[in-house]
């Protein structure tokens, strides 16, 4: 199956099981590659899709938690190839599809064709590139599409509905609905009534799965999202749960955190 198809299958399975798809985000190499690898192996059976972040020193869409995680990873020497190697080792035909999360400049420097080929070889299903507007996705799409790689796009709270519909149309795998204004952070409470309204209007315009991210941090949040949308993306809170720990201790902390979320998914 192609990356796009694997993501679709993951959402379909969660839906069939009447669950919201649980999508954790991990920053590759935070605090070291071995810890990330151990966490990936441990969580694969209990989640639906995994986002692996390629660390970037100027992550404009991210709040302090993920920015600090990226800095720890970069200080530890993590690279694009290093992050893709983690994806390759964690990727299994019967496991959750892996989506890379990367800012655009690193992959432009790496080469878009080369990056797409490396992702394909690693068994990754696609990538989220948060700082590329719809008008500029052409070159990325051209590199991804022939290899069946997904490019899920983000819809911001301020995106007008017409444009949101256009983004949904161009998005593959799922539509990433940003839950509120601002950057990633577990610190501010999402407004679920607002999210519900937004999802309802988007549903009228797209049949694609809708995953909600930014600020989804607790079992209660996941429960609320499960009543509204198809996927819940959890990043900062997961990193908060294991920040400062390595190896088994980090694995145990992430495991306990995700268990709590899965209970309400």
């Amino acid at each position: 199956m192609s990356g796009v198809e694997r993501i679709a299958a993951a959402f379909a399975r969660a839906k069939a099981e009447r669950r919201v798809a649980l999508i954790p985000y991990l920053c590759a190499g935070d605090p070291d590659a071995a810890t990330t690898a151990a966490i990936l192996a441990a969580i694969a059976p209990s989640v639906d899709v995994i986002e692996i972040g390629i660390p970037y020193g100027d992550p404009l869409a991210d709040g302090p938690t993920i920015a600090a995680a990226a800095q720890r990873a970069l200080d530890g020497g993590m690279t694009i190839d290093g992050a893709l190697a983690l994806a390759r080792d964690a990727s299994r035909e019967d496991g959750p599809p892996i989506i890379m999360f990367t800012y655009v400049n690193p992959i432009v420097q790496y080469g878009l064709e080369r990056f797409a080929e490396a992702m394909f070889a690693a068994g990754a299903a696609g990538a989220i590139v948060p700082d590329v507007p719809l008008e500029e996705i052409g070159p990325i799409r051209s590199a991804f599409a022939p290899r069946g790689l997904a490019l899920p796009l983000l819809v911001a709270p301020t995106t007008p509905l017409e444009r949101a519909a256009g983004i949904a149309e161009a998005s593959d795998g799922f539509v990433y609905l940003v839950s509120r204004l601002g950057v990633t952070s577990a610190q501010r409470e999402p407004d679920f009534d607002w999210i519900a309204g937004r999802v309802a209007r988007l549903r009228e315009r797209t049949p694609k799965p809708i995953a909600v991210g930014f600020g989804i941090a607790t079992p209660e949040h996941v429960r609320r999202v499960s009543a509204i949308a198809d996927g819940a993306i959890v990043g900062s809170a997961l990193i908060d749960a294991c920040a400062g720990y390595r190896g088994d201790e980090a694995v145990a902390r992430v495991g306990a955190f995700l268990e709590g979320l899965a209970a309400t998914a």
Binding site: G57, T79, P106, I107, Q109
Partner: peptide, 10 residues
Amino acid sequence: YVLQSAEGQV
């Protein structure tokens, strides 16, 4: 033009 590493880190 940006002062950056080969990996695109500023």
